[in-house]
Design a protein around this nucleic acid. Sequence first.
DNA 1: CTGAAAGCGCTAACAT
DNA 2: ATGTTAGCGCTTTCAG
Lengths: 346, 346
Amino acid sequence: MATIKDVAIKAGVAISTVSAVINRSAPVSEDVIARVEAAIATIGYLPHGAAKALRSGNSRLIGVILPDITNPFFSMVARVIETVCMKAGYMTFVYNTDEDPEHEMRILQMMRMQRVAGMILISTRSDAAHGRRLMAAINVPTVLFGSNVEGTPYDVITLDDRKAGALAIDHLVELGHRRIAIIAGRPGVSTHDERLAACIEALQRHGIVLDEDLIIAADFVQQLAFEAGQKLLARADPPTAIFALSNLMLIGAMRALLAAGKTCPRDLSLVGIGDFDWPEIMSPQMTVVATPAVAMAEFAIGALLDEIDSKRPPAGKRTLFAPELIIRGSSAAVSIEEPLRDPLAI
Amino acid sequence: MATIKDVAIKAGVAISTVSAVINRSAPVSEDVIARVEAAIATIGYLPHGAAKALRSGNSRLIGVILPDITNPFFSMVARVIETVCMKAGYMTFVYNTDEDPEHEMRILQMMRMQRVAGMILISTRSDAAHGRRLMAAINVPTVLFGSNVEGTPYDVITLDDRKAGALAIDHLVELGHRRIAIIAGRPGVSTHDERLAACIEALQRHGIVLDEDLIIAADFVQQLAFEAGQKLLARADPPTAIFALSNLMLIGAMRALLAAGKTCPRDLSLVGIGDFDWPEIMSPQMTVVATPAVAMAEFAIGALLDEIDSKRPPAGKRTLFAPELIIRGSSAAVSIEEPLRDPLAI
DNA sequence: CTGAAAGCGCTAACAT
DNA sequence: ATGTTAGCGCTTTCAG
């Protein structure tokens, strides 16, 4: 591969002049610029990224750490970040944690070795202990996305998870549902904790006594949600509605319904968090609390690049994006009145 | 950030010894290894990737170039590659071409700047002119994936596209379909060219006269396939079956059907290439020619790492993976006999 | 406006 | 078995 030295020789100038032309970092005469650019073109020279990074102390690399790129929500987020980064002259590393904190730490270490200039992190845990581990492993501008982490000074961009939970429960209660099951995520992540807390709060607000058996954690995993759905449907007193706290878990619940030969929304209403690209190809079409993925991702990468460029320390600002309830065919009023369980009615 | 020098001082050894310990590149006494490792741990030292890459001439970086990470087929491919690479001590850059050759060239340039050790390339064009452009832009071990490119010496891993096309057409013809529409991809990519050629061949083999108007190219874009579907359905003599040559185009066709208020498979049969993760949530469930994404990706990255490690030049070997016809509810026998168009019948 | 030279952090000869 | 040293290709003072 050609080096900057070859270009300098070819153009008959000094190495530093070539560098100045490439980076426009110092005034160079028009004549010399032309000669250097011609030399670059004929030789086919391309600067050596690692050498640049080593010498300048700036890798112009951004790390993106997310649970699973095959989840359409995250792949869209990655896509948006890539596009914005490329425009700004940054390259991106995208890595999957698989929701495993240990793996997250390993990825963080790789990012550090590459001396990334900044990171967008969708963390696997939200507790303070994990926050301390992160603080020890991260020494670059970072923006937390999707989930919060206690004890970190970073900016956080999330959905308004509490509102998302309340929106769905309110909707189901309005339709007359009282036995509402919740397929939850993984305790310890704010995405789970806040959504679930909001659900419980909403249920209580509506005077519904909480049935712990109707809440099943499925780790945000589609297959576990399927199994949770099967368990719920096999009950003597199955719920009249299921609320799944993520997009893939909603699919799992839907599969359980289909496997049990039940019909939605006749036998059971279904609601999820996170929308799908082509809702009309599902049957029935899903009622969801939609997450503005693109806007959130654009905001997050914008905030990160801003922090990197300005060299400002993180402000620790939390930005919540409003969820939107989209009512489709999967949720409907309870068809058959539940038998009263009040002793007084016997 | 701590450097190797800090570690050497702390451990009371030379920096080359530290390097030897880290890379196990030279024999070092147990005692010294322990001292160095202790120093690394207490200082929290992590090697500088760029410095390593610069000095060793090995970036241990792999580039993955694909059309669109939000397409579930490609996100799965990226996922598999990432996992295998990490195990082998490589990091991956994943970039989207958006099916745009110019953009592909720009990405190739970025990959070159990073001095990637190898690439998996899902190219946007298959013609020899594009092959020449690639040859001028690529100077590292590369494996072509999904589509072939004329005039390149690289190994190629693809679906057996001709078989995929024939499988679907044979299936539809067996069901009695004669007016079969094809929503094709983008001319100039082997994924399109070979699949379409096989379809035409199969139709002729069955004695069906080709109707050019029933073949619409939709650039592998979901929305364009939707529009193509609408156009086909609006005809005075609509087809009795549509075969979409990719997963997202199948969804586009399905949406067109729904938008037109038609029922599948009663009014029209639908077949696609590439399976979905949860086929049961669609209604009807789609008959597809399935692509073994995981096996193909594993094979491709294995071949690439092999070529890198062995320092062998590319063998130019073409490996075809067998597609599998999965018959589900979206394809059925033509219900109503088409009126005969043979003049003799008038 | 241009050029000479130092050195980013690391590896790999080569000496010892 | 361990230490010394010369660069990898680039940016960035600092002189001219």
